[in-house]
């Protein structure tokens, strides 16, 4: 790969690219303090821990309000965390200074959900791709231009797209540009936050394939976030299922998809309609809706929707523990 930004030494396979420990994010919804006011806290991420081994993809899956996107933004340091630790290549980035963080930025890149919103509408593709190169590559203007075109070709576009604005491109093309921008600094970790959900069905597969093949070519690690269990299973090695700000199940993608342990994962799995008119109706009865953990209850957040729940589940929080070697779940009933 002659075209890659190869200035940063890569870690050996088998080491951990990212280690997240007890990450918590609370939003205070009560506004300015006022005497006698009750504090309302939204616990968007309630103590999440996971590792991303070098060169692998972790899928974060869950429904709206489960905290998967907040987790991504915490790891990318787009939001300050309330507590917890994020070790990136052994360095605690939550504690990193502003100057240090700007150089770490080079290694953690992100692709967002809405491809139109993630590109500045007043900038041409050339300008969008130039900025990360200006900041991180130390290349001359001409070299940066060449590199930008190479990046576009890497994501399946070409030099013709350099002069375009986002509104002159389709959603899929914009998402490709966003991916090219994320590749520009030569990241070691790519966070893809719902990169498919704003795209047409026929385009989703293009972008999914692109991300998977880029990952194997360039050997970065990836956090792939989606509400779509099928897409996560396809893209990820390991998957973490989130509900109400916590990880309820974690394990290898294929096993988790085929034989879910946690009742919530089972419900999620059963809820996916199959593209087969002869498929059976889901055997699991769906009830309730995912909720945003505002002043969360003491027990398991899923208990109110769970067919297996007992009084124990409503009283205390089940810990995330190993149920089968390599697979963990947070449930008393598994």
């Amino acid at each position: 790969m002659s075209t890659m930004v190869a200035t940063r030494p890569r870690l050996e396979q088998g080491t951990t690219a990212l280690q997240v420990t007890e990450l918590v994010k609370e939003f205070n919804l009560s506004g300015l303090p006022w005497p006698g006011q009750r504090k309302t806290v939204l616990r968007a991420v309630g103590g999440v821990s996971f590792d991303v081994p070098q060169g692998t993809t972790l899928g974060l899956v869950g429904e709206s309000g489960c905290g998967k996107s907040t987790t991504a933004r915490l790891v990318a340091k787009l939001l300050p965390a309330t507590s917890g630790r994020v070790l990136f290549q052994g360095e605690d980035i939550l504690a990193a200074s502003g100057a240090r963080m700007r150089s770490v930025r080079q290694s953690i890149q992100m692709v967002f959900q809405d491809p139109f919103s993630s590109l500045n509408p007043r900038k041409r593709v050339a300008d969008i791709l130039d900025r990360p190169l200006v900041l991180h590559s130390g290349l001359s203007k001409r070299q940066r231009l060449e590199r930008s075109v190479e990046l576009l070709e890497t994501v399946g576009l070409n030099g013709d797209h350099m002069v375009r604005f986002s509104h002159e491109m389709s959603g899929g093309q914009c998402q490709r540009v966003a991916i090219a921008r994320a590749l520009a600094p030569g990241p070691a970790l790519l966070i893809a936050d719902e990169p498919l959900s704003a795209l047409d069905v026929s385009i989703q597969a293009q972008i999914l394939n692109l991300l998977v093949s880029l990952k194997s070519q360039r050997q970065f690690s990836m956090i792939f976030i989606s509400h779509d269990l099928r897409a996560v299973e396809y893209a990820a090695d390991e998957v973490a299922v989130m509900y109400a700000g916590r990880i309820v199940e974690q394990g290898p993608a294929v096993e988790t998809f085929n034989d879910p342990l946690h009742p919530y994962t089972q419900m999620l799995r059963a809820a996916i309609p199959e593209a087969n008119p002869r498929a059976d109706r889901p055997a699991i009865r769906m009830q309730g809706e995912p909720f945003t953990p505002i002043n969360p209850p003491p027990g398991c957040c899923f208990a109110s929707r769970c067919a297996l729940a007992t009084s124990e589940c409503h009283q205390s929080q089940p810990p995330l523990e190993v149920k089968i070697p390599g697979r963990t779940a947070a449930c008393f009933k598994v």
Binding site: E233, Y234, A275
Partner: peptide, 22 residues
């Protein structure tokens, strides 16, 4: 046919996107 092929089903199955854009 292509729409059916472009949706991920199982990991083993190859995902065949429809080229081009709408």
């Amino acid at each position: 046919n292509a729409l059916l092929e472009a949706v991920p089903r199982r990991k083993e199955d190859e995902l065949r996107p429809i080229a081009g854009s709408v």
